[in-house]
Design a protein around this nucleic acid. Sequence first.
DNA 1: ACTTGGCTTCGAGCGCGCTCCAACGCCTAC
DNA 2: GTAGGCGTTGGAGCGCGCTCGAAGCCAAGT
Lengths: 139, 139
Amino acid sequence: MEDALDRLRRQDTAPPGPGSTLSIAEMAERTGVTAHTLRYYERIGLLDGVARDASGYRAYSAGDYGRVVFLTRLRMTGMPIRELLRYVELLGAGDATVDARLAMLVNHRESVRAQLAELQFALDTIDFKIASYGGRCTP
Amino acid sequence: MEDALDRLRRQDTAPPGPGSTLSIAEMAERTGVTAHTLRYYERIGLLDGVARDASGYRAYSAGDYGRVVFLTRLRMTGMPIRELLRYVELLGAGDATVDARLAMLVNHRESVRAQLAELQFALDTIDFKIASYGGRCTP
DNA sequence: ACTTGGCTTCGAGCGCGCTCCAACGCCTAC
DNA sequence: GTAGGCGTTGGAGCGCGCTCGAAGCCAAGT
């Protein structure tokens, strides 16, 4: 059960050192987001201003890393990419948008709580079904 | 927050009386699954043996209702339709498949628990982000 | 010099789960 | 009898979020 979750927890402890950068492959490995998807995210505007090295290769900063990790968290809670985009646009628009961003997050937090409740509700149903199948099994 | 959840809870208290049947529109209303989707589910084999009235209209039984509700619970916990199909096939194959069905459910329950953990983990991140934005806001 | 392998771009393709359309049938009310 | 509304079918289309392929550049090893 700890598999995907462990990988996620590791995200928080694997940023590039300040000042150093990551290749796309390193980013993919540390964030769990494939290189294809990293390029895709950049293409659609979720990541902007990713630096390049002398050969034109992407060189991700600690900031880029942090953004990918946070976007990942929002994605895994079901925030659609359209909204991620909006959030990123607000980010890019500076301090004036702090309230709007906060509102988005508070709003989304409610949706996550609702998802948790639904999931728990469905889990109860499944538990009940399992019990009614005979009950002999992992507790 | 109780909106979707309330609708779900109502599912459990809105089956057709024993012996009576539901039109597709009534099913849609009570289960929250659209008529389009009910037909789709039948087409792909998730529902079989749905009775018809004299005019060829679908007449859903209490059993059909129960199945739709349970399938809904599995769907909302992310079980893909391919697996629902497998479950339904096992159901159709009779008592010999009880163990296999139970195994599927126990297995899926683990996945739901993992989802809950991931969701909670992401929620913590979001909470933290909200707090770091200033913290003034709904608790 | 040449191969290997990772990076680049652009654009097409895919799997999932619906969602909708067109053309038609049935049944009731006016 | 005719209009309106709900039902039927088969098949096409869609939105989402990737995912992949082709063609080519760059760096390092043998």
